[in-house]
Write a protein that binds this DNA or RNA. Structure first.
Lengths: 193, 193
DNA sequence: CTCGGCATGTAATCCGTTACATGATTCT
DNA sequence: AGAATCATGTAACGGATTACATGCCGAG
């Protein structure tokens, strides 16, 4: 059985994935969040360092003091076999409807790290297929909701609420297009070429 | 000065806006979150009822026992003048870059309630203009990041990370198109017609 | 030897989640 | 009276935010 709790926070998974990419220190990890599009998974020290401590306490990562070239020595973390197992388990998780509707960004994080999955290409294709199916279903739902909004406000020409809903619909449709094209690319190249 | 803390949680603003639309009970508010696209602002009772208590304690909403037709009587909340003031203050907030990059969904919530802003049409246009400007800037940034990714992984044909980044870019571009069209519609009709 | 910048950490506070418990009314 | 249902509440817990504090090294 895996050490620590069964389910981890999004931030923890983000850290695990980044460390899997290459061994890194807390400071480097923080810079990734601050400087790249991965902001939003939070880069505050008050979140990262405790999370790293938890992961190390649960044996998923291991830190080694790295005599820095200048300044205070960094503590470089690398993934343990247990950590690799947790990563694989996460990547193998099915894509649920709630994931798509409520936590799409965590899903995209998972997609990004699907590169490290065992049998990566197959898993990636499955992931995208499932994502597409749920996005399609969601679109149907949202179109029904927009009809409800229209019915409720017959006289008013454009309500803010309707426009906001349209933004949501458009964004789902956009992601669906993305998924289809991504899958097409993976299907032809097999992810390798 | 306004009672209570200066800044409120997204959930609280969502509640304030919905109550502004029409007086509602906690149960009704919960249904809105569960049944509509507003899920994601959380609909758990453990979040809603305490939030309503906070708002009432701070004098932003006022609940009155409403003898229900069946079942336990509902507690119907309506906005107080202080609550209206807080709502207006929130709606008048400038659109910052961090809002756009990190909290786009809260921004869309604000947009939806901009219908209730004093001088709604003008504020809406300003909101959209500012949103567009920040989205454009963000797009430039993200395109630079994708070049960095390309430089880092020259040989590999499609990396998952690059695809995930493309999804983000596409989604920002999509929202930008939405904002432009929304503004066009508001400009011509003046939001009324 | 202290200054400044790199790197890590911590303390207070607060909100949301989950799961459970309770209140109030009608129907049978 | 009890069941069913509508509606509200609460208790335990954990993690994120914010703001601050500390450690360690080289340069001057």
């Amino acid at each position: 059985m895996t050490p620590g709790r069964a389910v981890r926070t999004t931030l923890e998974y983000a850290l695990i994935g980044l460390i899997r990419q290459m061994p890194r220190s807390g400071y480097e990890l923080r810079k990734v969040f601050v400087e790249t599009a991965m902001a939003g998974y939070s880069g505050s020290p008050g979140a990262i360092y405790p999370a790293l401590r938890r992961l190390e306490a649960d044996g998923l990562i291991q830190g080694t003091k790295q005599p820095g070239e200048r300044g205070r020595p960094r503590r470089e973390y690398r993934l343990t076999p247990a950590g690799e197992a947790v990563l694989q388990e996460w990547l193998a998780q099915p894509v649920t409807r709630d994931d798509v509707a409520l936590r799409l960004d965590e899903l995209m994080l998972r997609f990004a790290f699907l590169a490290y999955a065992a049998d990566s290409t197959r898993r990636t294709l499955e992931f995208l297929e499932s994502l597409e199916a749920h996005l399609e279903a969601l679109l149907v739902d949202l179109h029904q909701q927009i009809e409800a909004v229209d019915a409720a406000s017959r006289h008013v020409p454009i309500t803010h609420a309707r426009l906001a809903l349209e933004a949501g619909i458009s964004s789902i449709a956009d992601r669906l297009r993305w998924a289809r094209e991504a899958r097409a690319r993976f299907s032809t190249t097999g992810g390798k070429e």
